[in-house]
Each structure stands twice: as structure tokens, then as C-alpha cells.
């Protein structure tokens, strides 16, 4: 290959015996044979894919035959293009994108002069139409958005825990005072919500028995944990994942999403990780029949922060 032929030329007007139109391969026949093998193997693989599909073979066999078939065909086609087609290089002239000054001015004049004279002289009409379209836009957008969902109102501020709600587990069974051994944990809901989406997402609460007698997590919460039953919202205050892991020895609740850790014994104050606030604690009491019940709703909004949260 002499050097001259590496200088790119334009495609059009190239004589048919120009070396740039020759295949790039030094041994085209050999390459052709290799490509033929690729195509044959690829076709066989694809036929195999059909057979695998027909007999409902395992997915990996389907994928292997399909993948290998496409790969062999692809390699063959690329090799065909790379070695058996004109090796070039070819050049294409680039025309400046910009038009002549006369054309540009004519274009600008068409818009500014012609359009301007019509619109500018009728400012009132333009203003009225613009105003109308603007109001139409707002009017269309607003109900469109508004239909998408309810207003938040105060639904984020409270849960379905009420004064006297029975504490039930996931199957709806009421939790009695003797149910949990010290150190064990249970996910609970206010009775009646355990199967609802909202119950699962908002009301979910972890119930941990930390001791046998009444337990105080913080000043002012002396009556909240009868018989050592401590209940915290299970919705992480960082991003709302369920705080699903309990490290029993350290008495830490761990959120598996971003590793926030909350200390069970001192009011679920975040010990580690990105969570900014303690998990709200649910005040509990034991009624005369020995069932665990809630004194009231949580005193703060559960879950991650938002603007209206006070």
C-alpha cells in the first residue's frame, strides 16, 4: 500500500479501479471464508433458538442460542464491512451552515418587518389574545393538576392510632401483655388497619419488649411503656423506609436503607446515620383484660420531613 492512497478523496467521480475502492483485507478470500463460517454458525444458533423456543427450553438456553446467533451474525457483518468493502478513506466537504448575509436579512425582514407591522400596529388585539391564551393556559393546567390527587391537608400529620386503639399484629390478632418475651420485637398496627395500604405504610409501629416492668424512655413518658413494651413508629424519619432491623444487644433499631440507627432505650434518638429526628413514640397502656392499647395518636408527625411539618 503506497502512502498516496491514504490521502482521503471524495467518493463521487472516483474511477472504479481506484485503490481506495479495493477491499481493505490483504487476503479477501480468507476473510470471506471466515465470514461464511460466522454466518453459518450464527444461522445454526438462531435455528437452535427457534428449536429451543418450540420445545420450551430453559431461559438460559433461549438466551444463549439467541445471543450467540446474533453475535456471530454481527461479527460477520462487521467484518464484511471492515475488510471486504472499499477501504477508503473518503472525504466529504462540509458546507458552512450559515447562509449568506442577504438570505439572513431577507429572513429577518420577513419576520420583523412583515410580522411586526401586523402585530405592532394592533397592540390591543395582541394583548387581548395573549391574555386570553394565558388565562386559558392557567385554567387548563390548574384543574388538570388538581384532579391528579387529593390535597395533603393534615393527612401527613396524624396516623390512625386513636385513644384506645387495640394493638394488633400483622394477622390482626390483639397483642396481650404476656405475648412478647423480653428482647423480642413485633410489627403492630391499630386494629382494623393491618390489611390496608395506609395501615401498612403510615400506622406501622414496632413493638419491643425491653423489660418486664414499666420502662421510661424519656422524661415525661413515664407511663408510655407499660410492662416494658416500647412502641415506636416504624417509618424512618429520613426517607420513610421501614426501620426493620433490631440489634438486640445494643438495643438499636436500624433502617436498612441508609443505615440510620435509633436507640430504643432513650426515645429512639438517632445514634448514627442521616436520620435527623427520633422515631416518634406511641404511648401505650394495658387495659383491664390485659390487652395492649394506645393512649393516643403519636404526638408528632411520623416519617420523613416536609414543609408543613411543625
Amino acid at each position: 500500500m503506497t502512502d498516496e492512497h491514504r490521502t482521503p478523496v471524495s467518493l463521487s467521480g472516483l474511477s472504479s479501479n481506484d485503490p481506495r475502492l479495493q477491499p481493505a483485507a490483504r487476503h479477501p478470500e480468507l476473510v470471506e471464508r471466515v465470514i461464511s463460517v460466522c454466518f453459518i454458525v450464527g444461522t445454526l444458533c438462531l435455528a437452535g433458538f427457534g428449536a429451543c423456543y418450540w420445545i420450551d427450553a430453559q431461559p438460559w438456553k433461549l438466551g444463549a442460542t439467541l445471543g450467540a446467533g446474533l453475535l456471530f451474525l454481527g461479527i460477520g457483518i462487521v467484518a464484511w464491512g471492515k475488510y471486504l468493502m472499499p477501504r477508503g478513506p473518503f472525504v466529504e466537504e462540509r458546507h458552512t451552515l450559515a447562509n449568506s448575509d442577504a438570505d439572513r436579512q431577507a429572513f429577518a425582514a420577513a419576520i420583523v418587518e412583515r410580522g411586526g407591522s401586523v402585530v405592532q400596529r394592533r397592540k390591543l388585539l395582541g394583548g387581548l389574545l395573549g391574555g386570553g391564551m394565558g388565562i386559558f393556559g392557567v385554567v387548563v393546567m390548574f384543574p388538570l393538576l388538581r384532579s391528579l390527587g387529593p390535597l395533603p391537608k393534615r393527612t401527613l400529620q396524624h396516623t390512625d392510632w386513636r385513644s384506645g386503639s387495640y394493638v394488633v399484629d400483622q394477622s390482626g390478632r390483639r397483642v396481650e401483655v404476656g405475648d412478647l418475651a423480653v428482647g423480642s420485637i413485633e410489627t403492630v398496627f391499630p386494629e382494623g388497619t393491618e390489611n390496608s395500604d395506609r395501615g401498612q405504610a403510615v400506622d406501622q409501629t414496632v413493638l419491643i419488649r425491653v423489660s418486664n416492668e414499666a420502662f421510661t424512655t424519656m422524661k415525661g413518658r413515664e407511663t408510655w411503656a407499660p410492662h416494658g413494651y416500647v412502641a415506636y413508629s416504624k417509618v424512618c424519619t429520613h426517607l420513610g423506609c421501614p426501620v426493620g432491623l433490631y440489634e438486640q444487644e445494643l438495643q438499636l433499631l436500624v433502617c436498612p436503607c441508609h443505615q440510620s440507627m435509633f436507640n430504643v432505650t432513650n426515645g429512639a434518638v438517632p445514634q448514627f446515620g442521616p436520620a435527623p429526628r427520633p422515631l416518634p413514640q406511641l404511648p401505650l397502656y394495658v387495659d383491664s383484660s390485659g390487652f395492649l392499647r394506645s393512649q393516643s395518636d403519636y404526638h408528632q408527625a411520623v416519617g420523613p420531613g416536609f414543609w408543613e411539618r411543625s
Binding site: 438460559w60 438466551g63 444463549a64 439467541l66 445471543g67 446474533l70 453475535l71 451474525l73 454481527g74 457483518i77
Partner: peptide
């Protein structure tokens, strides 16, 4: 295109 599809199919298979 065939090569990319082939590799994707192999990934999907294995």
C-alpha cells in the same frame, strides 16, 4: 446492532 443485541441476550441468559 447485532453484536449489541447478542451481548444483551447473553447477559439476559447468564
Amino acid at each position: 446492532l447485532f453484536i449489541v443485541s447478542g451481548i444483551t441476550a447473553l447477559l439476559g441468559a447468564f
